[in-house]
């Protein structure tokens, strides 16, 4: 304990703080880039999964299989799979890229179900009204269904991304210089584990908490038709 208190001034040196700040930035960047790309791809996946017709049956199966398989693999295993696969294909890929790809693959599977739930919450009759006017499937999704599904999709999607900030700690296993990795490093340099990981814990909290608040705000905002209209107006401008 005494050793820890004695270490405090040295631990919070400009050099260490910069290191931690960079690591926090990396953690956030990985999560945001991975989740945003994953979220976008999940829309494509959901759209493909709903392709009508017998000829599209294999396509639908592939989409369903992807979601069901990836949701049942531990994230750490996905990371290793991506690591070894990417290194086999392009040996000079950066670890950051590998981490983002792993996050992305995982996020697709989880957010696809969130998106599907949102889309299914829009009454079928809205789609019929659009069909009866000759709107194409894509036009119907973009103009009618998604704008209405949005309020159902956004809050849980943000909640997923926020909780995923924590899970990215696992990519420290492959040597990405994110928060947890830096923590282990500092700990190895002789700093007290309680001090180091207490600080790391605080960093994770500071990263996720504002995002959680944003999620809660959006949930409230999007929950009522009136709020939805306001939000739409804000997004449009």
């Amino acid at each position: 304990m005494e050793r820890m208190i004695e270490q405090i001034p040295r631990f919070f040196s400009a050099q260490n703080l910069t290191l931690l700040l960079e690591a926090a930035g990396l953690t956030l960047a990985m999560t945001l880039v991975g989740c945003l790309i994953g979220f976008g791809l999940a829309f494509v996946l959901v759209f493909l999964r709903q392709t009508p017709g017998l000829w599209a049956l294999p396509l639908r199966w592939i989409c369903i299989a992807y979601v069901e398989v990836f949701r049942r693999i531990p994230f750490i295993v996905v990371i290793y799979l991506v690591l070894f696969f990417i290194q086999a294909v392009t040996p000079d890929a950066s670890l950051f890229t590998i981490a983002v790809i792993a996050i992305c693959l995982y996020a697709v599977a989880y957010t696809a179900d969130i998106i599907r739930g949102g889309i299914e919450s829009v009454p079928r009759t809205q789609v019929e009204a659009a069909e009866a006017m000759n709107l194409s499937r894509l036009q119907t999704q973009l103009k009618i269904v998604l704008p209405q599904a949005w309020p159902v999709i956004v809050p849980p999607a943000i909640a997923f991304a926020v909780s995923f900030i924590k899970d990215t700690a696992l990519v420290s296993q492959v040597g990405v210089f994110e928060l947890t990795f830096r923590g282990k490093e500092l700990n190895n340099q002789g700093y007290s584990g309680i001090l180091v990981f207490g600080t790391i814990a605080l960093c994770y909290f500071l990263l996720s908490f504002p995002l959680s608040l944003l999620g809660q705000y959006l949930e409230k905002r999007l929950g009522t038709p009136r709020g939805q209209r306001r939000a739409r107006k804000i997004w449009r401008t």
Binding site: A129, A130, M133, L135, K143, I144, Q148
Partner: peptide, 26 residues
């Protein structure tokens, strides 16, 4: 053109947008 029992107006659009969507886009 069909009018449904439950109206099925597009909830995310104004009255004007409901009326002009298909004439403009389709």
């Amino acid at each position: 053109a069909i009018v449904f029992q439950q109206y099925n107006l597009f909830q995310n659009m104004t009255v004007m947008q409901n009326l002009t969507l298909a004439p403009l886009k389709i």
